[in-house]
Simulated assay, not measured.
Amino acid sequence: MRLRNIPGANEAVAASPYCIQNAAEHRGQWHAFFENDHPIHIEIGMGKGRFLMDLAALHPEINYIGIERYTSVLLRAVQKMDTLQLPNVHFLCEDAAKLPEIFAPEEVDRIYLNFSDPWPKDRHARRRLTSHEFLDRYDQFLTADGRLEFKTDNPDLFTFSLEEIETSDRWHLNASTRDLHHDPSMNEGNIMTEYEEKFSSKGNPICKLIASR
């Protein structure tokens, strides 16, 4: 999908106090950045930020960092934060492949992946955020008892993700469902994203898995 360029998005993101510049300089020092020792949860591919900001409002005892590669998308989250001003939320405009350069070992407690790009062509499989390549990256900075939570409406991507975890020698599957909204145990406390509302309203079942190391 071609993203619409929004004039001024780069400048607005760079100027926002909620967007962290030169993120690699904080590697190993993220608790100092937040000025507390609260757990750090990140969402990779956060889009317009509704999911992350809803979580942050409910859990002020957790620090949240949203990662979004495109400024034209991140701009929408910045605009929301101008109103909400949540102290426990910040954003990074970064490529997910660079995250081990930004977070030190044992620095992140939870990773959220919501409705990630499925990269449907086989030759692009390594770009999927649940591929072995990315699981290896997450392993470099997730805490020993940390976990990964992944939601999608794409059944093929979900099957791929399950297989990547099940064939990994460092990750294991804690729970999974192919119909989240009709699974009482996994849907309890579920926070929906904009995409999730859109897809589920059309009758698309939502898949979710939870994995840890």
Rank of each mutant, 00 (worst) to 15 (best):
M1N: 14
R4K: 15
I6D: 10
E11T: 05
V13A: 10
S16I: 08
S16R: 05
N22Q: 15
A24S: 12
Q29W: 04
Q29H: 14
H31I: 06
F33N: 02
F33L: 01
H38L: 03
P39Y: 01
I44W: 00
I44Q: 00
I44A: 01
G45E: 07
G45W: 07
K48M: 13
F51W: 11
D54F: 01
D54Q: 04
A57V: 07
P60L: 13
N63I: 00
E68V: 04
R69I: 09
L74N: 07
L75M: 14
V78Y: 09
F91V: 07
F91D: 06
L92Y: 11
L92C: 10
E94K: 10
E94Q: 15
A96W: 02
A97M: 04
K98Q: 11
E101M: 14
I111Q: 05
F115A: 02
W119G: 13
K121Q: 06
D122A: 13
R126E: 12
R126P: 06
R128T: 00
R128Q: 01
E133F: 13
D136R: 13
Q140C: 04
F141D: 03
A144H: 13
A144C: 07
D145W: 07
R147K: 12
D153Q: 09
N154Y: 02
F158A: 11
E166V: 11
H172R: 15
L173P: 05
L173A: 10
A175T: 03
A175Y: 05
S176M: 05
T177Y: 08
L180P: 06
H182Y: 11
D183H: 15
S185C: 10
N187H: 14
G189P: 02
M192N: 15
E194A: 05
E197R: 15
K198V: 03
F199S: 03
S200Y: 12
S200I: 10
G203N: 06
C207F: 14
L209I: 01
